[in-house]
């Protein structure tokens, strides 16, 4: 891959192998390959989402890109700077937020937390005072900044984390599962904020489990599975990757179990979900070429009353399920 000057984040064949040892007497070394050659090229100002199941390697990528972890091999550059050798220059210009409640001094106030990190980011005092005030305002922490963090709700802690990550007005912001544990409203607010930051020119690299979240705000996404990127592109192009995938839903009364099994055996069918309602069952089938399946339902279920047949477009979630399963 040729690195171009305009990219915010570039990775070329990133690999990471964790070595763990266990055992007291016979020390066993175990290698665990977390990344198997990851390529990325993210432009400045882009809002990039990384999706993947648990343990796929998302956090590992973020840690490497934020200079906290060294890759086993491969090259990564942030703003043209090498993550291994130019970590110091990078650290000044990026921000990172890891999801969850850890990573704050719980026994101190939110303001103390921010002041501390402002000094660690070597922000001049007058700038940092103004900046902290603004951030408390934007992140809706005003009025609670003197309270100890241990008394904050999860959402407040998450917003405080974000405030910390934004202290140095980072050019590139890394967010590892930023909406984890937030309620729907809190999640939406956070997404709005991230979108706004991106519009103002910040490059954002975000990982998430929530497809809707990625679909809603990301310019481009990548799906990672077992340390490999299996798809990359705009949300709509990923969806077209699952083009002939779709979902057929219908209601039916008293479908016997062996019929359901027969449905499952059809070559085009991926999953069959049966939901019992009062008088009927709602059947949801994930399959390829849903149109054909819907058309032939009548003959497949010979003569049973099939109601409310609907064929859905694949959502990003469908595309995702398809990508990370099999």
């Amino acid at each position: 891959m040729r690195f171009m000057g305009t990219s915010a984040i570039q990775a070329d064949q990133l690999r990471k192998t964790y070595t763990t040892t266990r055992g007291l007497i016979r020390r066993e070394r175990k290698d665990h390959i977390a990344l198997r050659g990851v390529d990325l090229d993210i432009q400045r100002g882009e809002l990039f989402g990384l999706l993947g199941p648990n343990g796929a390697g998302k956090t590992t990528i973020v840690k490497i890109l934020t200079t906290l972890l060294l890759p086993t091999s491969g090259v990564a550059r942030i703003l043209g700077l090498d993550v291994v050798n130019q970590a110091w220059a990078i650290r000044k210009r990026i921000g990172f937020v890891f999801g969850g409640e850890r990573g704050l001094y719980w026994r101190l106030s939110g303001l103390d937390n921010l002041r501390y990190f402002a000094d660690l980011y070597r922000i001049p005092p007058d700038v940092s005072r103004r900046r902290i005030g603004e951030l408390l305002e934007t992140l809706d922490l005003k009025g609670r900044e003197h309270d100890k963090v241990e008394g904050y709700s999860r959402g407040m802690k998450q917003r405080l984390h974000l405030a910390r990550g934004l202290l140095n007005q980072p050019e590139v912001l890394f967010l590892d599962e930023p909406t984890i544990g937030l309620d729907p409203v809190g999640g939406r607010e956070l997404r709005g904020l991230v979108r706004r930051l991106s519009n103002e020119g910040t490059t954002v690299f975000l990982t998430t489990h929530y497809m809707l979240e990625a679909d809603e705000i990301c310019d481009r996404i990548a799906v990672i599975k077992k340390g490999e990127i299996v798809a990359q592109g705009t949300p709509s192009s990923i969806k077209t990757g699952a083009e002939d995938q779709g979902v057929v839903e219908f209601e039916i009364e008293g479908l016997p179990a062996q019929r359901i099994e027969a449905l499952r055996q059809l070559p085009a069918v991926a999953t069959v979900i049966v939901e019992e309602r009062e008088l009927a069952q709602v059947i949801t089938i994930h399959c390829s070429r849903p149109g054909e399946l819907a058309a032939s339902l009548g003959s497949l279920l010979d003569g049973m009353q099939v109601r409310n047949v609907s064929v859905r477009e694949p959502t990003l979630e469908d595309a995702y399920v398809l990508l990370v399963s099999n």
Partner: peptide, 18 residues
């Protein structure tokens, strides 16, 4: 334990200063 070690290692101030 508080999960902040990573953050102070990741900021542009050398550990020794802290």
């Amino acid at each position: 334990w508080s999960g902040t070690l990573e953050q102070i290692m990741g900021c542009p101030t050398p550990l020794v200063v802290i």
